[in-house]
Write a protein that binds this DNA or RNA. Structure first.
Lengths: 109, 109
DNA sequence: ATAGTATATCGCAATAATACGATTAATATT
DNA sequence: AATATTAATCGTATTATTGCGATATACTAT
């Protein structure tokens, strides 16, 4: 049918998948790296930095915001986007324990 | 146009995005968790465990394999899938340093 | 050889994601 | 008030993803 069957998975699995999906695009990774590199991030700067149209960048920012990875406050005419510290740490920890749950000696093939 | 412009991003950004995309689906997260929980994983068991059709599971396994997250060896009639230790560790480290690059005090809004 | 079992692949329908030009909304400057 | 600047939203074309029934493939057991 083309639509993910979220109802058969746990909330934790769905939440992790949703946040990872927000992360799983090179433009959004680049945006996050740029936000981290500078401390104040204005959308206009990203349009020059990356080679994407303003509408496209704005859309990626919206997805990152919806996923809770970034937050923005109006700063005069422009908008200051930065990392959402709480959710960033949450995802970092969720991923940490997910990866740590695998022990090398479990490999069988 | 509907196709990701990989050429304007670094190889590192594209690689990370590709692996994260493979991870960014609740079914594939569930599959990986199940592979980790048991130590030997047979596709048939997954069909019963998750509520998805055999064709769908097989497709998800293929994506995980293409991304290098799992590997499979023929084990008689069935196939034994397990984590690919090298790539698992690579992704774990790449994500680790990505998340660690953000320092709380960088928050401005 | 035949039948059974396990997994992959094909083909399709439905939906989601990507990108961008054009437009709109909101604030700043003159 | 008129104009410029910044970012969001709309509409749309293109492509990718998800899911599954049907079929194909490959190995086992009888």
């Amino acid at each position: 049918m083309g639509v993910t069957k979220t109802e058969i998975f746990t909330d934790e699995q769905n939440r992790l998948a949703t946040m990872l999906k927000a992360l799983a695009h090179p433009a959004r990774i680049a945006i996050l790296q740029e936000i981290i590199k500078r401390k104040t991030c204005i959308c206009g700067g990203l349009v020059e930095e990356l080679g994407l149209a303003q509408a496209t960048i704005s859309q990626h920012l919206k997805e990152l915001k919806n996923a809770g990875l970034i937050q923005g406050t109006i700063e005069g005419v422009s908008i200051c986007y930065c990392i959402n510290p709480e959710n960033w740490t949450l995802l970092e920890k969720a991923l940490g324990s997910f990866f740590a749950s695998y022990k090398m000696e479990n490999s069988c093939c």
